[in-house]
Nucleic acid binder design. Structure first.
Lengths: 230, 230
DNA sequence: GGTTGCTAATATTTCGAAATTCGGAGCAAT
DNA sequence: ATTGCTCCGAATTTCGAAATATTAGCAACC
């Protein structure tokens, strides 16, 4: 029998997940102060799990920790964005190459299935809504992650997760959202197709273009909103 | 007047630093259980700062956190090592290139100074000692970091720090130490020289060879000690 | 006018005890 | 022998209050 002990969970871990989500989604605005008292009210937990969660987020730079003067949501700015994007492009194309070469049959299934799941969702919450649909965001991450997960590389997985979180913040915070749903859908379809056909060159090409297109829109929006100076 | 508010420090931060050092140096052996009670005795602090420190280390994978069943020093094995080394080679050569291109005069000074500092230290604690000299380890990290720090890239800095920590553990744990002091000294001298001469191609070549030589020795030692299976 | 020094108010950090959960020992039933 | 239970000791998690540190407001001073 397989040793499928699932991880139980602690308050600290659940608060960590919610806090991470709230930073990434923009519910907690970039640069804002995170007072323990405020968060205690928001999440209805004691100091201990809160601080543990905040420190976890601080090592991945989603939150800044300043000894004796508390925590703050990391700020967003253009220079930061450019660093994240260029790192993502390099890391993800590299991972995709390894992934397609090493991926087995169950990996192909996961890719196909996660693409199907993503394809059925719509990007926005309601009709004229400005907010990205959280379910879509999750499926989007899941799909991209699956394409890259054919070769298991714990350290690259970690780095990818960190970059994805930072990158997502920009997508989620700009209003109106800088992304075109039809273009994205077609990009994802083409990416899934190339990956499943094991066409390394084509897949890498598509992914690179996907990242560049997306980041170009975001860059333009950031400049318009004057995110240029820290 | 410059805003030189130095960061104060908390128990949590100091314990974090000591715990990190003890994991990297091997004072806390790979795979060992970290009981709160045991650590409370070792570092003479309460639960709270301890847990905060442990969670910080867990997000960089130096420590494994398991909900409801505590913490454990991350294990070492050959597969893990290979992943760290290949990531380091790619990241560091890339950073070195950018760094030499972007570095200014004060950066050159920092490189020269950190190399001088490293060169005056000896690798081992005493005469026939097996233990790496902690001051040497620090200066070694400092020197390599300075060569890469000409272009400031917060995310690459973070990734480099993570990889360095993981990588160091292997150097520190194997007995007898797998590194030859004379070879290292000459590698570092040549690297410093090429970097200060702004010879990108040569510097990258030397760094790549430096990493490959070092990792080859460690790989051999790991195989001898049967670190092959997790 | 702006700097300095005090005090009050606010926020963060730390502690140890209480509550919860885990993991093994012992025992019974299959 | 294996499985399934309950109980018990040990370890982890969580809380709120006490101890510290920072910040803001205000007054006194150059």
């Amino acid at each position: 029998m397989p040793d499928d002990r699932e991880e139980p969970s602690t308050l600290a871990s659940r608060v960590h997940a919610r806090l991470r989500e709230d930073v990434i989604s923009g519910a907690l605005p970039p640069g804002s102060k995170l007072t323990l008292e405020g968060l205690r009210g928001r999440y209805k937990v004691g100091m201990t799990p809160l601080r543990e969660a905040l420190y976890r987020l601080s090592t991945t730079l989603l939150v800044e920790a300043h000894d004796q003067r508390g925590f703050r949501v990391a700020a967003l700015n253009l220079a930061h964005f450019e660093q994240v994007v260029s790192a993502r492009e390099r890391l993800e194309t590299l991972m995709l190459e390894d992934s397609i070469r090493a991926g087995d049959a169950t990996w192909s299934l996961r890719v196909a299935e996660s693409h199907r799941a993503l394809d059925t969702l719509t990007m926005y919450e309601g009709q004229g809504s400005d907010m990205l649909n959280p379910a879509w965001r999750l499926a989007h991450h899941q799909f991209h992650y699956e394409t890259l997960s054919g070769s298991r590389h714990f350290i690259q997985d970690l780095f990818h997760a960190i970059l994805w979180d930072h990158s997502s913040r920009y997508r989620n915070i700009l209003r109106p959202p800088p992304l075109d749903e039809t273009v994205l859908k077609s990009d994802h379809a083409k990416l899934a197709e190339a990956v499943l056909a094991r066409d390394v060159e084509m897949a890498v090409l598509i992914l690179r273009r996907h990242i560049r297109h997306g980041s170009a829109s975001i860059r333009k929006a950031l400049k318009k909103e004057n995110f240029e100076n820290p």
